[in-house]
């Protein structure tokens, strides 16, 4: 139920932001369309802790802060490698364990790896993740598992 309420509020704010109309009639239409979408989503049974992870909000926000810093640092590293003349890269293919218990945690981890330039998750299996890294240093940094520990994971068993 909290998911449905939170989804309704989110959708309505989205509608308000995108339309920019504040007249009563149009807002009424916006509310109607929001409710229609929520109704459809409820019937499709797509509203759950996975599609709308509000219980992770606080941890997600702090993780995004960490991720933003990592992305900037990794970007600078990749830019240096692009601009360094000669052979500046040493591509690696490494397989790492997936410590996350939930599917959501795994997806967040894989996306975070791909979002950080210099590492791309190539294959996601049940317990391992295969990562292509641009250089040995970036692969080693990822293998320390620092990012894996910071990923928010709701701890419930995977569905």
């Amino acid at each position: 139920m909290t998911h449905i309420i939170s989804l309704t509020i989110t959708l309505f704010l989205l509608w308000l932001g995108l339309s920019g109309h504040f007249e009563p009639l149009l807002i009424l239409i916006g509310v109607a369309s929001t409710l229609l979408v929520v109704f459809l989503a409820t019937r499709m049974e797509v509203i759950d802790h996975e599609s709308h992870p509000i219980h992770l909000t606080v941890r997600l926000l702090s993780f995004w802060g960490y991720l933003a810093r990592e992305i900037v640092l990794a970007n600078i590293d990749v830019i240096k490698r692009i601009l360094t003349p000669g052979k500046s890269i040493s591509p690696q293919m490494i397989t790492l364990p997936l410590p996350q218990k939930s599917d959501l945690g795994r997806v967040i981890y894989a996306n975070a790896i791909t979002l950080t330039p210099g590492t791309v998750s190539v294959q996601l299996d049940r317990d391992t993740i295969t990562v292509h890294a641009l250089a040995k240093e970036t692969a080693d940094a990822l293998a320390t598992g620092e990012m894996a520990r910071k990923v928010p994971d709701d701890g419930t068993a995977a569905g």
Partner: peptide, 19 residues
């Protein structure tokens, strides 16, 4: 254009997508 194969080019494209 500089990187030698597809997987390394992926990293270069990722740079432009994010920052």
């Amino acid at each position: 254009h500089r990187f030698p194969d597809f997987f390394t080019r992926l990293h270069a494209a990722g740079t432009t997508d994010t920052l």
